[in-house]
Design a protein around this nucleic acid. Structure first.
Lengths: 214, 214
DNA sequence: CCACCCGCAAAACAAGCGTTTAGTATATTG
DNA sequence: CAATATACTAAACGCTTGTTTTGCGGGTGG
C-alpha cells in the first residue's frame, strides 16, 4: 500500500536516516562511514545507497529532516510566545529554552545544529538566515509594544541576541563543565536564564561615571 | 647548535604546519588529505610523515601551535586591559576585539578556533577551560573596583559573557551576511561593539513594570 | 499463474587514503 | 676524508572507503 516510486518513510529508510543523524551529530559527516550507519540501522551498506542514492544524498536528507525540526521549534517562538511572554513577565524568549523543551534529553539534534552552523554549508546558512529574520521581526514587535528598548542599530541588536542564544547550544558541553550544569536541561536552563535575564534587563557593567583614576 | 634531534622551526616543517593549519581551518581535519597538505606546502607526502610521525601527530602540532597563539591573545586581556579599560572608558574587553586585532585579515586562526571548539576534542576543552578561568578572574576584579555589577551567580555570568564573545568568532560568517559587516574587521567590530556595549551597560529589554494596555 | 518490481543482503570493485620503503643528495662530525 | 645523520623524493603497499553488481524472496497486477 502506498508504495510508489517516491517512497514515504516506511521503516528502514527512516531507521537509516535516524542512525545517520545521530552519528553525524556525534562525530561529523566525514568521520562516519556508510558501513557504520548501515550497521547502526541494522541493514546492509548497499541499502543505504539504494534508498538515498549516495552518502551525499543521505546527508542532504538528514539536513532537510533536521532543518524541518529546527524550524518547527523556531516557529513557536515567533508566533505565540510574544503575547504570552508579555503577559507572563518572561523577558527572554530564548531559542535555547525552546530547544531544551523540544529535544528533551538525549536528542542528537542540538549537536547536529552545531555541525550545521559551524561547517559553513548552505543548509546552515539558510537556517541562520531564516532565524535572523524571525528574530528581527520579533524584536521590532517587542520595541513597538515597549517590551524592548529601541536600538540605534537594530540589525546588530537582533544578531547579538540571536548568536548569544545559539552560543548556548554551540558551546553546550563547555558551558556544562564550566558551570557544572548542562544548560540544555531544565535545571541548567533555569539557572542560565535567570542570570541572562538580569543582564538583559539591567546590564552587567557600570558606565564610567567620571574620571576617577590614579 | 641549531639542529639537533628535535629540530626548531626551520623552513619546511613550519611550511607544512602552516599549510595544514589553513586547510584544517577551512575544511576540517578529516576532509583534508596528507597529499593536499604536502602539495600546498610544496613538499612530498612522505616528508609530512617524516616530520610529524603521522597525520594525527601533525594535527597535534597544529593544535599546540594554534592554542599558543590563542593564549597569547587572551593573556593580553587578563593582564593589561583591566586598568587600561577602567581609565579609558572602554566597557567591554572582548575576546573578539582582541582577535580582530591579533589576526588582522586573512588569518586562518579564527576559523581554526571554530573547529577546535566544535569538535569536542580535549584541546578545545582545555582552551575553553583556561579562558573561562581568566574571564572569572577578570570579572571578579571588575566587580571589586565597581566596573561590573555583582551577580548572584558569578559562574553563569562569566560563562555568559565568554560565550557571547566566542559566538562572534564562531558565527562570524553568518553574522557578516546578516548585518552586512564582518564583525572581525575593524569597521564591523566597531559597529558590533557599540551596540553590545549599550546592552551590557543598560540592558535590552524592559522589565514588565505593570499592565500597560492597548 | 506468470511477470514484474521492490526491499534487501552479499560480495566484489575501483579509487583514494595514510603510511612504509628505498634511495639520493647535502651537510655535519670524528 | 670517510662515516653518519638529516632533509627530502618517488614509488609502492595495504587497507578502507563509497559504490556497483548480482541475486534472492515476496507481494502485486494483469
Amino acid at each position: 500500500m502506498s508504495s510508489t516510486t517516491e517512497g514515504r518513510d516506511l521503516t528502514a529508510r527512516a531507521n537509516i536516516r535516524n542512525a545517520a543523524l545521530r552519528l553525524f551529530a556525534e562525530r561529523g559527516h566525514d568521520a562516519v562511514t556508510v558501513r557504520e550507519i548501515a550497521t547502526a540501522a541494522g541493514v546492509s551498506p548497499g541499502l543505504v545507497v539504494h534508498h538515498f542514492g549516495s552518502k551525499e544524498g543521505l546527508r542532504a536528507a538528514v539536513d532537510a529532516h533536521a532543518a524541518e525540526s529546527f524550524d518547527r521549534v523556531f516557529a513557536e517562538l515567533g508566533s505565540a510566545d510574544l503575547s504570552e511572554m508579555l503577559s507572563s513577565g518572561e523577558a527572554t524568549p530564548t531559542i535555547a529554552e525552546a530547544f531544551a523543551r523540544a529535544f528533551p534529553h538525549g536528542s542528537p539534534l542540538p549537536a547536529y545544529l552545531r555541525r550545521l552552523l559551524l561547517t559553513n554549508d548552505p543548509a546552515g546558512a539558510a537556517l541562520f538566515g531564516r532565524w535572523y529574520a524571525a528574530t528581527r521581526r520579533l524584536l521590532d514587535a517587542m520595541v513597538e509594544v515597549g517590551a524592548a528598548a529601541p536600538s540605534e542599530d537594530p540589525a546588530v541588536r537582533a544578531a547579538f541576541l540571536l548568536v548569544n542564544d545559539l552560543a548556548v547550544i554551540l558551546l553546550r558541553n563547555q558551558i556544562a563543565s564550566a558551570i557544572g550544569d548542562d544548560p540544555l536541561t531544565p535545571a541548567g536552563l533555569d539557572r542560565w536564564a535567570r542570570d541572562v535575564t538580569a543582564v538583559y534587563l539591567g546590564g552587567a557593567f557600570a558606565a564610567p561615571r567620571k574620571e576617577q583614576g590614579t
